[in-house]
Write a protein that binds this DNA or RNA. Structure first.
Length: 432
DNA sequence: TCTGGGGTCCTAGGACCC
DNA sequence: TCTGGGGTCCTAGGACCC
């Protein structure tokens, strides 16, 4: 059996922790650049706020319904996420069974194969109670024989909070059938917009229960090959999606951003890209990796008719490094000529991004007798840089090429304090 | 006027090899 | 006019996830 533990309205719940007067009030959190709504409390959902809609389209609703709005505060959410995951690892006895897989900032799978059937319900309730007591973050727990089914369970647990109290265990044939009958295929983990429409319109398949009875060979032909076969098996309670090794490294590292306002000058574009390279290189070093290729892309004009103006031929360049590296200076040196070759005078740039690929373990690098000395020094320099920036401030020490004025930086006009990660922003209580 | 960011996996097709 | 078979590796693009 698998559990999936999912934090309820995670970003909003983090904000409420330090503003308890917002409990049971409608709250939303925005994406970077204060663009879209990416987290909503139940009250905000009831007030009619949809997921992922642009802020400017919801202005009226926000005003009339008295909804509180926050910019995203990733320092706070990242730190709270760590606390929740640490709690789960402790409760699930992860040091013995290595059974917790952190799936996203607000979700984790737990492999429960070491628990007897009769203990599942109690275990789920304990997770729910202890996590909220220790961290203040409410969670929902779904348990079932496969990952896909546990997601189904979790969704139902969340949906009907009163009845199920945010816990749902699907361990009998009857419960499974009922759950699958009330789940639309579009709500399945692994069925997105395209497949949902295809299933509905072309095959008349609307519920997960219907899909579960389709033959594997049909799924292989019509539902993405082996992906479809896996879906059918998972729906039938045959687990095919394994737990992922927590030590696995990223295969690609990207840093991309919309600009706070349009960029026209080459110099500014280069600064932005140099800044993104620095961020990406930090992430790379954190996993002890080195990259062997770097991609740079730009997007002009923002969105037109729902599409960004992006043409791979003209807006994208890549470079293969002679040797894999994690050195920020080397990566910036590789990236800047790419920006120059992409730049067109007069274009209005809305976004840029950097992707590091061909990632290999740093210690597997082939040594070069002649630059060994240099290499050591650079590595020490990068380590010092990371230490300072980690402990002091995000960009306390930075490369000049990444700019000093940074006119293009993203908007974040409603960010709350970084209460748990910055000494000078600790939460203050005034006692009367 | 204003629409996020960062990933994964799979497949098809081309280049290249013997 | 006739023109093989079987691999591997890489890349682009599609679909999905939160």
């Amino acid at each position: 059996m698998f559990a999936i533990v999912d934090c309820n309205s995670f970003y909003c719940s983090c904000e409420r922790l330090f503003k308890p007067h917002l409990n049971s009030k409608p709250v939303v959190v925005l994406s970077n650049n204060d663009g879209c709504i990416i987290s909503r409390t139940d009250e905000a959902k009831k007030a009619g706020i949809a997921m992922g809609v642009p802020l400017f389209e919801s202005r009226e609703l926000i005003r009339t319904q008295g909804i509180t709005v926050f910019s995203s505060n990733y320092h706070l959410y990242g730190d709270m996420s760590m606390r929740v995951m640490d709690t789960l690892r402790l409760l699930a006895d992860d040091s013995t069974y290595r059974c917790v897989e952190v799936y996203s900032v607000d979700e984790a799978f737990i492999n429960l194969s070491h628990l007897p059937e009769h203990a599942l319900q109690g275990f789920a309730e304990r997770l729910r109670d202890v996590v909220v007591q220790w961290t203040g973050i409410p969670v929902s727990v779904g348990i079932a024989p496969s990952k896909v089914l546990s997601k189904v369970a979790n969704r139902l647990a969340k949906k009907d909070k009163r009845k199920s109290h945010c816990v749902m265990v699907l361990n009998t044939a009857d419960k499974l059938q009922e759950a699958l009958e009330m789940t639309d295929v579009s709500d399945l983990w692994g069925i997105g917009r395209k497949y949902a429409r295809k299933l509905n319109d072309l095959y008349g398949i609307n519920t997960a229960w219907q899909l579960r009875h389709m033959p594997e060979e049909w799924a292989r032909k019509n539902l993405g090959g082996v992906v479809g076969v896996r879906m059918i098996r998972e729906l039938n309670g045959v687990s095919c999606i394994q737990m992922k090794d927590p030590l696995e490294k990223k295969k690609m590292i990207a840093t991309t951003r919309m600009f706070g306002k349009p960029v026209y000058a080459l110099q500014e574009l280069k600064e932005a890209v140099a800044t993104y390279v620095s961020r990406a290189a930090e992430k790379l070093r954190r996993q002890y990796g080195a990259a062997s290729s770097i991609d740079v892309f730009v997007v002009t004009n923002g969105q037109q008719s729902g599409q960004y103006a992006y043409d791979p031929q003209h807006h994208h360049r890549y470079f293969t490094l002679m040797k894999p590296t994690s050195d920020t200076a080397e990566l910036i040196r590789a990236a800047l000529p790419l920006v120059e070759s992409l730049y067109r005078k007069g274009s209005k740039y809305a976004k840029a991004g950097v992707m590091l690929g061909g990632i290999v373990p740093d210690d597997a690098l082939q040594g070069n007798l002649f630059d060994a000395q240099n290499k050591q020094q650079n590595r020490a320099l990068m380590q010092a840089l990371d230490n300072i920036n980690f402990s002091m401030r995000d960009d306390m020490v930075k490369f000049v090429s990444s700019g000093l004025t940074r006119n293009w930086k993203m908007r974040q006009e409603m960010r709350s304090g970084r209460y748990t990660t910055r000494w000078d922003e600790l939460h203050e209580l005034k006692l009367k």
